[in-house]
Design a protein around this nucleic acid. Sequence first.
DNA 1: GTGCGTGCAAAGTCTTTGCAAACCG
DNA 2: CGGTTTGCAAAGACTTTGCACGCAC
Lengths: 151, 151
Amino acid sequence: MRHSDIMEALRERIKEKKYKFTRQRQVVLQAFLDSRENHMSAEDVFSLVKNENPDIGLATVYRSLELFTSLELLKKLDFGDGRSRYELNDRNLKHSHHHLICLGCGKVVEFSYEFGSGLKEKMERENGFQIVDSQLKVYGYCRECRKKNAR
Amino acid sequence: MRHSDIMEALRERIKEKKYKFTRQRQVVLQAFLDSRENHMSAEDVFSLVKNENPDIGLATVYRSLELFTSLELLKKLDFGDGRSRYELNDRNLKHSHHHLICLGCGKVVEFSYEFGSGLKEKMERENGFQIVDSQLKVYGYCRECRKKNAR
DNA sequence: GTGCGTGCAAAGTCTTTGCAAACCG
DNA sequence: CGGTTTGCAAAGACTTTGCACGCAC
């Protein structure tokens, strides 16, 4: 999915729900398109956009992130470092990507993994849930941290 | 694993690391053995233990939970409701249990799922990580919430 | 007895909220 | 214009920390 398509998706979903396509909302989403950092916290986004937009408020960033998550443009993640992080919910790009987290240095690496096809159906059948999404986190120690600590 | 074994494990690991086997630490761990609530927050634990132990401080509960997590007696979980939750890390009891979380009401259901045996090895080989643990969270809507919202 | 652990309160961090002003449609 | 949205500051929620006292070893 191209960047312009994502911004267009924002415009459409915003219009559809009768929200407003404000400058601040564009700028916040643009930060995700421009940044190479995949997992930004609210503060990360705020720092990025404040350069071009000194008047934007941190509360607005929080409100935009929450809105975009509800519009399914972003995914909210938690890596256990005390703040929420967000990534583009680019469902067409990657089938199913998950996170490998280093317990030593906190580094996060993405990887692909497809669950057995029966999992979703099994849980809908056995637990009565309608499954929407899943997140797999795998914890370990990266090469550098293993070397450093002679694990 | 029986309850007395878990308390014994606490005593051993504490001794091994030269910590002290205090009344408060016993009481906090005991709360997990007594409670049928599987995923307690610090506040949950505090409420439970305060009945028998009115003098215990919330900070002590937090410090014990952190200690037990580092000793691998507890696992720290995050279900996205703004507070950390903890469960017994009873590795011998359940092979690999994960969490099914209702986006409507927040209910959490546990389920078993074993990853393909190659996953761990693949990640160690391809990413250089030494894998320690994994957590799978699956999000959806439970039967009651689907009924309520006519999904 | 010694030093780790505790209780209390204060401080810290992240996030949400109240409100008047600004802005989109 | 009118109702959303914003910026700011204050409040809120959870967690951590400083310090004097107490307890395990």
